[in-house]
Every structure is written in C-alpha cells, then in structure tokens.
C-alpha cells in the first residue's frame, strides 16, 4: 500500500474517538453509535475517491456519518410503518411538560428535533466552525445559526440553570 494511503488511514484512525462521540450524540446509545460508525466507515472506505484532499477529512467523515444516520432513521420509520408497532420507541421525556430543569444532557438532547440535535452535535460538541457545520448539514449558515439558537433555548430550559453556573 502506498504512502498516501497509509497516511490517510492513520488520520482516519486518529479521528475515530471524535467520530464515536459524534455518533453517540446523534444516536444517544453506545451500541447504535458504534454500529452507525462502522457502517459509515465502510461507506467512507469504499468511496475514498470522493474525498477531496483540499477539504477537511473530519468534515467529510462527519458528513458520511450523518448520511448513514439519516438512512437509519428512515429505515426505522419504514419499519415502524410496516410493522405497525412503536419500533424502538424510547422513553423520551416530554419537554413541554413540567420536566424543566430536571433532565440530564442526554435526555435533553433526546427532546430536540433531529435537525437541531445535529447542529448542537457539530457546533457545541464537536466544536466545528459554523461554515463547516453548515456544509455538513447542507444548509446555509443563517439556517444553522437559527437552529442553534432554538436548540440552545430549548436546552437551557430543559437543563435549568445548571450546576453552580
């Protein structure tokens, strides 16, 4: 295997912990997260030619994880429709109720709409610049910032003033 491929491989390996964290924040379940990442890595490695060397490798991989997650959500929705059951329905707390300020971050994240959760995962958790995050999600920066603002408001309300802050 040639030098560039080795280098690329070691860069991907280095990114695995962050990719796992990203997958975890999307799926909110360790097993689902690792399964998701595994599927995404397989996709990435069979389409390695699609990565452009002048773009961020992490952003490209985040994008693939995001696509894989959206596919997974769609197939879950299909399954639910075909099976007519609640599928993997989790006990999602109702944030419109009186749960304000009593939730863990994970529970609060679970209350966010998917598009807001994705924005939070990329910007607040992964620490990406708005520009990169907007590209990964595939929306203009203005859309990203308004999603972030709504997500922050919701999280603030769900989490309450927080510990000692």
């Amino acid at each position: 295997m040639s030098g560039p491929a080795d280098l690329l491989q070691s860069r991907i390996l280095e990114l695995l912990p962050k990719l796992r964290r990203f997958a975890r924040s999307l799926t909110r379940n360790p097993h689902d997260a690792d399964d998701l990442l595994q599927a995404a890595l397989e996709r990435a490695l069979t389409h390695l030619e699609q990565w452009q060397a002048d773009t961020r490798l992490d952003s490209w991989l985040y994008t693939i994880v995001k696509h894989a997650w959206i596919d997974e959500l769609r197939s879950r929705a299909r399954r639910e429709r075909t099976l007519g059951d609640a599928g993997q329905a989790e006990a999602v707390p109702d944030h419109r109720g009186d749960a304000s300020g009593t939730l863990s971050v994970d529970q609060a994240m679970a209350c966010l709409p998917e598009e807001q959760r994705l924005a939070v995962a990329l910007v607040l958790i992964e620490g990406l610049p708005y520009k990169e995050a907007a590209q990964i999600i595939g929306v203009p920066i203005g859309t990203l910032t308004s999603r972030l603002a709504r997500a922050r408001q919701a999280l603030q309300q769900l989490l309450g003033p927080g510990d000692g802050a």
């Binding site: 695995l16 962050k18 964290r21 607040l124």
Partner: peptide, 30 residues
C-alpha cells in the same frame, strides 16, 4: 451561554477516553 456549551460538551467528553472497539479499528483499516 458558555456554561450551557460546556455542560453539553462535557456530557459527551467521556467517549473520547473510551477504548475504540476492535471492530471499528478493523473497519477503519484499508
């Protein structure tokens, strides 16, 4: 705002310290 950001991020930081499962290391190898 900072506290919120730190709190959300802090909740997922632990993942970075976990050992990456063998299956994922394998999947990442060309």
């Amino acid at each position: 705002q900072r506290a919120l950001r730190d709190r959300v991020r802090g909740a997922y930081d632990g993942v970075l310290q976990e050992a990456v499962p063998q299956a994922l290391l394998q999947a990442a190898k060309l």
